[in-house]
Amino acid sequence: MAIRLADGSRNRATRDAYGEALLQAARREPRIVALTGDLRDSTRLEAFAGAFPDRFVECGIAEQNMAGIAAGLATCGKIPFVSSFAAFAPGRCYDQIRVLIAQPRLNVKLVSTHGGLTVGEDGMSAQAVEDLAMMRALANMTVIVPADATETAAVIDALVAHDGPAYVRLGRSAVPVLFDEGYRFAVGAAPVVRDGDDVTIAACGIMVTEALEAARALAADGVEARVLNCATLKPLDEAAVVAAARETGAIVTAEEHTILGGLGGAVCEVVAASHPVPVERVGIRDRFGESGAPRALQDAYGLTAAAIAAAARRALSRKRRG
């Protein structure tokens, strides 16, 4: 069953949706507190800080301490949302996240903006292209990459109700609004956003938009691609991935992340163990980024609909050779 899509006319950054969604959630749920490390503007928490000064914690440029403070707050019944750039959280506080949050399974939500290459001009030190692999490796950790602003708001609501640690990766730049207001998000579900039986494209984040465009291009050549929105990398919807392998016989993964250890890795693990079929991974090929406009970087690093369509054709030809 395919999901209803928005008309495609609007663009919005997922971080903008986050700031608004958390503010609304905080009005309903008094346990929510928000922490940032001198990034209340970039992570879109200024309105939250203004509305709830007693529930906002400015930690300064000190991500290690911020992660620890969040753990302590969680033991006192708070629901801390910790926001920084993906390069810094998890990058600057990984062991704190591991020992103080993931191991005791505390109810801390790490929501990082500026994930991936599309940070753009600030260049490779600011571009987290390995954060999903880092977080996916932690036991107890839920890992989510929303595809658009609508899904981001739904993810925040779902996480308020979800007990346990989670990492959400958001982007800096405006991206198309894919889903209409009726969209339902469930942790651990990979909904089919386009039906097809020839090949599956499993995508997350900004690559869902690219996957849908690739599917349209493939359809023009008579290839019907199924598109899965794998927003939850962990726990991965293994049933949806295995069904895709069984029913379409070939899979392309697409992520704004290294192809090692993220969505591509996760899908390969499941497919290899349960129903081996050809898998082609679209993503960053074991290298770091560089400065440039977001779109130019997507083109240069192969994070495009064209790259996905080409990968789908490779996967199809491997499937036929089977």
Partner: peptide, 18 residues
């Protein structure tokens, strides 16, 4: 609070105090 790696339990204590 679970601890082990040095230099971090202190931050969690501060979260509790906060």
């Amino acid at each position: 609070m679970s601890t082990g790696s040095l230099g971090m339990g202190f931050s969690a204590a501060i979260g509790m105090a906060l």
